[in-house]
């Protein structure tokens, strides 16, 4: 009787866990199911390298190269902003702030990481875009540059808090050994602590990048929305996420356009998946490397 009850409870838990798994797998299945039919209409190379995205013209064209280039340029720009600022902030919190200010700074960084992207997008649209337009004297503030700066700032908390964790995981004995050899604080930081935490820091950068690539509302509001191939930060672009968000409302259910948007989602999904796998590989290696010393 007793063990029957126990087994029943275990059974319920495994059912719930299994349904969880089904839900999570359903995402992949649905994306493929809705997106894959597009490739009976066109082949992969037309989709990835096609230079024009005209979903509503006759006949429609679904080349996502301009969208990929939009995502790329915005991500690149954002990385330039967030990598130095994010890692620099982590170094400051780790090395220069006193124990009391560290106790305050760390939670603040984390709390700032939870600011919704729509708030950033709104700020970018009302304040940052006009300011950038005036400052650089360009026709519109809604361009790759504005999107890059804002996305970069958004990713800073992610990078800072993961990097800081990685830095504080470095065993104290490493630093003490370096000080004992006569190195100063800065030399110790750059020659001992940072290399020891390098894999954790690179994980943080990859996760930050993954957040930037997937960010939707901000780029939808400020990137300008032009699906053209460009290499200039001052021209409007249309990253993949913004395209999905902007066009899904008007794409008819089951149409080619609808399928193409799902195919873009699939590309995004795969991209972040790859980032994630890389990040995980690196942090596994890191656990092995430092594990022996702790």
């Amino acid at each position: 009787m007793f063990s029957f009850k126990e087994r029943a409870i275990k059974f319920i838990f495994s059912c719930l866990a299994f349904s969880c798994l089904l839900f999570l797998l359903a995402i992949v299945v649905i994306l493929f199911w809705q997106g894959a039919p597009l490739f009976s209409y066109m082949d992969f190379s037309q989709f990835f390298f096609g230079k024009s995205w005209y979903p509503t013209s006759q006949p429609p064209e679904f080349g996502i190269f301009p969208l990929i280039s939009g995502s790329l340029i915005v991500t690149l720009g954002a990385m330039v902003v967030c990598v130095p600022l994010g890692i620099g902030s982590a170094l400051y919190i780790y090395e220069l702030s006193g124990p009391n200010s560290k106790k305050i700074l760390k939670p603040i960084v984390e709390i700032l990481g939870s600011i919704p992207s729509i708030v950033f997008g709104f700020f970018a649209l009302t304040i940052a875009a006009p300011a950038i337009q005036q400052f650089f004297n360009i026709p519109t503030g809604l361009c790759a540059l504005t999107a890059s700066i804002i996305l970069g700032i958004m990713a800073i908390p992610t990078i800072t808090s993961i990097s800081e964790d990685a830095l504080s995981f470095v065993p104290n004995s490493f630093r003490e050994a370096s000080y004992a050899l006569g190195a100063n604080k800065f030399q110790t930081l750059f020659k001992v602590t940072i290399p020891a935490a390098a894999s954790g820091i690179s994980t943080s950068v990859i996760l930050g990048m993954s957040r930037i690539v997937g960010e939707t509302m901000t780029v939808l509001m400020v990137s300008g929305g032009a699906a053209v191939i460009t290499s200039s930060f001052f021209s409007p672009v249309r990253p993949m996420t913004a395209t999905i968000a902007a066009e899904m409302g008007e794409a008819a259910f089951g149409s080619l356009h609808y399928q193409a948007l799902f195919a873009i989602a699939l590309v995004l999904f795969m991209t972040t998946l790859v980032f994630n796998v890389i990040a995980e590989r690196i942090s596994q290696k890191y656990a092995l490397k430092l594990g022996a010393n702790r």
Binding site: L21, L24, L25, A26, I27, I30, L31, W33, Q34, L207, S210, R211, V213, G214, E215, T216, T241, I244, A245, M248, L261, F262, A265, L268, F269, T272, L273, F275, N276, V277, E280
Partner: peptide, 19 residues
Amino acid sequence: SVNNLAGVPSVVFGLFGLA
């Protein structure tokens, strides 16, 4: 799946919800 879904863009979840 939990590890890998954590980084998936929220707009992709939106599309899943729609479909």
